[in-house]
Each structure stands twice: as structure tokens, then as C-alpha cells.
Design a binder for these strands. Structure first.
Lengths: 125, 125
DNA sequence: GTGCCTGTTATATCGAATATATAACAGTAG
DNA sequence: CTACTGTTATATATTCGATATAACAGGCAC
């Protein structure tokens, strides 16, 4: 998987990286147990500092997407906490749905977009 | 409508305020053409600086939710730019849907959440 | 006009967040 | 021992967020 940092974005580098890795897990570019590149290797590849990569990894660990294996480094390990996950999802959804509703994006349209996007991610079938 | 700032949140004050106002428009607590409190009044009411409120208003204007009426101040005025709005919505949705998919939140569950939330917002019927 | 309300602009200051850099450390593997 | 993990400690520079004081232009009521 190739990571790309937009150096002109207002979004923090470590946040961009975090989102891309989560996207990678969702699209199965990464699978459970797979090791991510080391902080030093990845930082050289994408041209940012080692500590910035480390911060992305730390956030991913705190959010339950990876864990640190002392032998292999950072590996994909999704830890689902149903109640907390849904609560967080609901909160994020509320805000962007409010934006959509204000802008006149209809419910049906949203459902279609969900299917369109979700089909690219893992899930039942 | 009552605004509440969480002073312990990592989220910037002006972002919290922005989101609450958008939520207010979506739930019809505010309607098209209605004036928002003045920057000075609102800053006193919620206990933050005038410039912080002004920044929230400026962002809302840039994002097409309000406009400035030289006589009445800041008024609700949603400016929909279909193509741009959907593009932005899709991008935001992609990220949080990826998170949800990783955490094992199913498609059906998401559709249900959408309906649940969207019903509180404006839309057809 | 005067006075009072709008948003806006200009400075300045302070702390926190972001990103970088160099260096060192503990643990694991070959 | 050597080479690789992540981690920690400092230090520095820049940007962002929030505050503060002050002033300005425009609209409106009197």
C-alpha cells in the first residue's frame, strides 16, 4: 500500500496517515495480524519525520486499530468495543448528516452513497 | 437556542460553535433569514472571546450557511452548491464509514442509524 | 447630527499543537 | 555482537487557537 501526504493540506500529517491506514484496513489492503512498515522506514518513504509516523501509530493504537508486537513492530489488530464504537460513529455521523440535510442532500441519496462506499469496504457479503 | 462550549474538549471552541449552529439549522431551531446573536452578545453569553465567535461566523459564511446583512448582522442563508456539497459529504463519509467497517458495524445497522438521525433533520416529509 | 448597534480589521500576547532534529534506551531476532 | 523494533528525552521552529484592547465603517433610531 502506498501512502501519500498532502503537504499543502490543513489536515495534520499524522491524521492524514492515520486515515489512510484505516482506509487500508477497511479495503483489506491490510489484514489482521499484518505488520505495518517501521516508523523509520515509513518516515523515509513518505518524507516526513519519524516521530510524526510514530504519533500516527500511537493514535491508531489508542483507537484500537493496531497493537505493538515487540518482535514484529506495529501490527493490524482491530479491537472492537461495540458500545463505544457505535457511540462515536453516531456522533460523527450526526454532524456530517446535519451538514448534508442543510445542503438539501436527501435521505435516499445518502443511503445510496452509503451503499456505494460501503461496498468497497469489508462487511457481510 | 442554547449553545454550550465544552472547555475540556480537544475540539476548538469555534468548531464546536460552528457545529452547533449547523445542527440548529438542520433541526430547524433556526430558519432561513433568521438572525444569529451578535458576536459581542454571544461571546458574553457563552463565555468565550468575541473573536472566537467571529471566527465561527466567518467559517459558516465561507461554508455557505450564513451571510452578513449590514443591517441585521449574521443571518441564516444556506447556499447549496450541489456538486461541491456532495463531493465534500462523500469524502467525510468515506473516512467514518471506513472506521465503522473496521469495527464491524454492519451496513444495515448504518442505514438504521442514518434514518434515526436524519429523521430529526429537515428533508422530504 | 449623536448615540448605539452591527461586523471587521489591526496589533499584541500567550499557550498548545504540529513537525522536525539528534540522541539515547530496552527489547527481540539473527 | 549487530541490526532491527518502538519508545523516551530534549530542543527548536512554526502554526493554530484564544484572548485582549482598540479602532473603523456602515446602518438605524432619535
Amino acid at each position: 500500500m502506498i501512502f501519500e501526504i498532502d503537504f499543502n493540506s490543513t489536515e495534520a500529517f499524522y491524521m492524514q496517515l492515520r486515515d489512510q491506514i484505516i482506509l487500508g484496513i477497511a479495503t483489506r489492503a491490510f489484514s489482521e495480524g499484518e505488520a505495518l512498515p517501521s516508523v523509520r522506514k515509513l518516515s523515509e518513504d513518505i518524507g516526513i519525520n519519524m516521530h510524526t509516523v510514530n504519533k500516527a501509530y500511537t493514535v491508531l493504537r489508542d483507537e484500537g486499530f493496531v497493537k505493538v508486537d515487540k518482535r514484529r513492530g506495529v501490527v493490524i489488530a482491530v479491537d472492537a468495543d461495540r458500545i463505544r464504537d457505535i457511540e462515536r460513529f453516531r456522533k460523527e455521523l450526526s454532524i456530517i448528516l446535519a451538514r448534508a440535510a442543510c445542503k438539501g442532500i436527501g435521505r435516499e441519496e445518502i443511503h445510496m452513497l452509503i451503499d456505494e462506499i460501503y461496498d468497497e469496504y469489508k462487511g457481510e457479503i
